[in-house]
Nucleic acid binder design. Structure first.
Lengths: 356, 356
DNA sequence: CGGCGCGTGGTAAGCGCTTGCTATGTGGTG
DNA sequence: CACCACATAGCAAGCGCTTACCACGCGCCG
């Protein structure tokens, strides 16, 4: 049924070794022979069997990309950029060949799923793995992931972390990491609100145990402290998730609890959208009555009404960078870790309190 | 370096065949033997080599998912839902095992890339392929894709089309298809505007040669015709792409060309956002001065201000359905083709013209 | 003019796993 | 008590490809 190397060889009147050599182009083959082979390949519509090739040559055409949820634009953009780099060979464009296939895995933020996917990728002897986004902070899990990654690395799989804090492996070695400056970004964002004159700032957090959540909250706290304010966490923070619903619910909770609020910082842009909805519903204007800020600078944020003040993470660039790193097309940053800057983007959703 | 079946066999004091059988569980193995083997697997941290297994058993753990761009929420949602189904085994959750890996390929809407990816997936002997979204309408390309898909099908790869029109293969066979009712949805949307009293309706199209673009435009035209209006295409349509920029640019063009417009229908929600931005910029209010409508009902549409009238495509459901179909967990719809309904969702961005 | 080296192509040994077939030991049955 | 059937386990032949190693023939140099 399916055409094999041997079929092509027979048709071209050469041995299968020769066909293999023509196809891989890493061994001298006379021009006339090469042509005969290529013609046979054409005629038979031969397509190499990747599994067999991988087995024989101990290589793989797969690169794993672990994300929380690919439907979330944050991860979508990251993955899209990474995929493009992974598919691109050394030359331009997918069509030129030489690229690999990106296996996207939705972990849903679930630690077990993360490990399961890593094992699945290990099964396929993936050439590389990119882990994106923050991760759960549970010692057991961190240890398990570290061990798994060490194993993968030992087996020759390139591992890149993108948007999560560096992980120190036993040997002291560090897997290549692109960390986002969540703390610094959050700090600058809150400073922006403080400098506008806000003193009662609510904060809506992401899921409890995530590194990203913690870092952003820490940045927020640092800014408050620097201004001599104490973060009244119990009263002024609420949260739960990085989605619209959570932002909406948390905003309502916060407004009930602390009506004096003049600004709300959301865990990310998506949640900020929910916050805006909650404010609108209560008849509060943004930014005249309450300022709102997000994080990430997702595409829709610039188009929201009012346009959302946020912190820009260069997701596309970071994803592409991670892609190049995992493809070994670029050398790792010194020390194995690079911090990706998070830039404050002030827009219309924040203003001085009481401004009409 | 890496542990093989033979290593496990040696450690357990059995033959590698027995280990294989324990691991695959499709052949009787005595309880005591099984336990010994499993212990050895544990101790050695053995992970089966997927390539070797695939080669020997003529199976594959990969399913391809072709999308235009995974960063676009339309495809992100589709892919996310599909991925989840693909990863899920017959039982619940990823961790239970039995699932496959989703290979996501960004074609960028480029026909050549589409073919290249199909070949790459064919190389890997993928268990299945899902092609999502509209496709370019070029005879050469359609023929090439059809041929490729026929080939894949013949090789045992399950092919599912999701969100694109059915493709008739030579033999009269039809690959399983979930088509979106773009035409009907667009028609109902324009009817909605007409029934509000609009008579001067602008239309912003997607890329020229895409099926989706054509179908939506046809639905729009059908609604106008049914109302005895002639679509003055030259004057009242503009467009270019399914993104914000295109919507913005096209809206400006349209407003310059036909200031009498009281409503604008955009190719999709993303473009509609650009339209709103252009209107705001000109000091036109939505919907008082100009009504705006989108298509797809992407998550942000409900949160836009004003909330966007649109046509809901059940992307999540469709993606999950495609996933189940490609995994052969559900039988194909009668005739191999199912049409996914597109439901009008009237929201605040459309109102009667002249209403203040 | 003989031999050496290089440019080519073939041979065959795996890569790590699955699986059809065979071999063995046990219990049940006539 | 002999025989057969069944439950297990092993043997070995591939799956389709890569690649180390060898063979061959030609041109060239000494």
């Amino acid at each position: 049924m399916t055409v094999t190397l041997a079929d092509v060889a027979a048709r071209a009147g050469v041995s299968s070794a020769t066909v293999s050599r023509v196809l891989n182009g890493n061994y001298p083959v006379a021009g006339s022979t090469r042509e005969r082979v290529l013609r046979a390949v054409e005629e038979l519509e031969y397509v190499v069997n990747g599994q067999a090739r991988g087995l024989a040559a101990a290589t793989s055409d797969l690169v794993g990309v672990l994300v929380n949820d690919i439907a979330d634009p944050f991860f979508g953009i990251l993955a899209s950029a990474a995929q493009t780099e992974i598919a691109r060979g050394p030359r331009e464009g997918v069509a030129a060949g030489g690229g690999k296939l990106a296996v996207v895995c939705n972990t849903g933020g679930c630690p077990e799923a993360e490990l399961t996917y890593l094992t699945l990728l290990q099964r396929q002897r993936a050439a590389g793995v990119i882990l994106t986004g923050g991760t759960a902070e549970r010692t057991g899990h961190t240890r398990a992931v570290t061990a798994k990654l060490a194993r993968l690395t030992a087996d020759g799989t390139r591992v890149v972390l993108c948007g999560r804090p560096p992980l120190t492996v036993d040997g002291g070695a560090t897997t290549t990491t692109l960390a986002f400056d969540n703390r610094g970004g959050a700090q600058r964002l809150t400073e922006h609100l403080l400098s506008l004159g806000h003193r009662h700032i609510g904060y809506i957090t992401g899921p409890d145990d995530r590194t990203t959540t913690r870092h952003r909250l820490e940045g927020h706290g640092a800014a408050l402290t620097a201004h001599g304010l104490t973060a009244d966490a119990a009263r002024l923070t609420a949260g739960g998730d990085y989605d619209r619903r959570a932002g909406y619910a948390a905003a309502r909770e916060l407004l009930d609890r602390a009506p004096e609020l003049t600004a709300i910082v959301a865990a990310n842009d998506t949640a900020a959208l929910g916050v805006c909805a909650a404010l609108r519903e209560r008849g509060l204007r943004v930014p005249q009555d309450v300022s709102v800020a997000g994080f990430d600078d997702l595409p829709f944020s610039a188009d929201a009404a009012p346009a959302l003040t946020t912190v820009r993470l260069p997701l596309h660039e970071a994803g592409a960078w991670a892609g190049r790193l995992v493809m070994d097309r670029e050398s790792a940053p010194p020390g194995g870790v690079a911090t990706v800057a998070a830039e404050l983007v002030p827009r219309a959703s924040t203003a001085a309190p009481g401004a009409s």
